[in-house]
Amino acid sequence: MDIRRLTDRYAVAPQLDPQDMAALAEQGFTTVICNRPDDEVGPDHASDAMAEAARAAGLDFVLNPVSNGGMGPAQITAQAEALAKADGPTLAYCRSGTRSTFVWAFGAAPVMPVEDIVARAGEAGYDLSPVVPQLRALAGQGGAQG
């Protein structure tokens, strides 16, 4: 598994396998968020199979599919709410971890400095520079300085 931590409580990864869930629980994760739509994967990696494996490992599982075509306020809000409800570290996954990073960044912008968001994503290997103007606009709405 290629786990990349963005904060103490949030990490992202490329596509997981069902058998990865037990290892995630052993590493202290309590919640897994699937940002990959079922139409991008086969049955062994569909959300039902992944949810079953996560629950068998004692993990909470949240389905919040984000398509390659983009994300909207519903996905951003769902991701932020899942993080707020999690009772421990959360790992989100998609094909490469990029969508999981972007959806987190948009949700974090109102409460975290944009420079910190961009730096943490960059340290994890994800380039948020194309969306910095949108992050700054969201930061202005929430009062965070960025």
Score class of each variant (00 low, 15 high):
Pro133Asp: 13
Asp20Cys: 00
Leu59Asn: 07
Ser129Met: 09
Ala105Arg: 12
Ala124Thr: 00
Asn35Gly: 04
Val32Phe: 01
Arg55His: 14
Thr101Ile: 00
Ala137Pro: 08
Ala108Leu: 10
Phe106Glu: 11
Val111Met: 12
Pro133His: 10
Val62Tyr: 04
Tyr126Lys: 03
Met21Tyr: 10
Asp44Ala: 15
Arg136Gln: 15
Glu81His: 05
Met50Phe: 08
Thr101Val: 01
Ile76Tyr: 07
Ala119Val: 01
Met21Gly: 06
Met71Pro: 03
Tyr93His: 12
Asp127Lys: 02
Val12Asp: 12
Val132Ala: 12
Arg5Tyr: 04
Ile76Met: 09
Phe61Tyr: 15
Thr7Ser: 11
Gln27Cys: 00
Ala56Met: 07
Asp2Tyr: 02
Leu59Ala: 06
Ala82Lys: 11
Ala74Cys: 02
Glu26Pro: 02
Thr77Met: 06
Ala139Tyr: 13
Ala92Tyr: 02
Phe106Arg: 07
Thr30Asp: 10
Gly143Pro: 10
Gln141Gly: 04
Ala108Ser: 10
Ala82Ile: 07
Ala49Asn: 13
Gly88Glu: 11
Gln75Trp: 08
Phe102Arg: 12
Thr30Arg: 14
Ala144Asp: 10
Ile117Gln: 13
Val111Phe: 14
Asp116Ser: 14
Gly58Gln: 11
Arg136Lys: 15
Ala25Phe: 05
Pro37Ser: 03
Thr90Lys: 05
Ala53Phe: 13
Gln79Trp: 09
Ala144His: 09
Pro113Arg: 12
Gln27Asn: 01
Ser47His: 14
Tyr126Cys: 04
Gly142Lys: 11
Ala49Arg: 13
Leu83Val: 01
Asp127His: 05
Leu138Lys: 15
Ala139Met: 11
Asp44Arg: 11
Phe102Cys: 09
Gly107Ile: 08
Pro37Leu: 06
Phe29Tyr: 15
Gly97Pro: 00
Arg5Gly: 01
Met112Pro: 05
Phe61Pro: 01
Ile117His: 14
Ala144Trp: 09
Ala144Pro: 06
Asp8Leu: 05
Gln79Phe: 15
Asp127Phe: 04
Arg95Ala: 11
Ala13Arg: 02
Ala109Trp: 14
Gly58Thr: 10
Met21Ile: 03
Pro133Lys: 11
Gly28Trp: 07
Cys94Gly: 02
Val32Glu: 02
Ala25Gln: 13
Thr30Leu: 06
Gly140His: 12
Asp116Pro: 00
Tyr93Leu: 01
Asp116Lys: 13
Ala121Tyr: 07
Gly140Ala: 15
Tyr93Lys: 02
Val12Lys: 09
Leu91Phe: 03
Val66Thr: 07
Glu40Arg: 05
Glu123Arg: 08
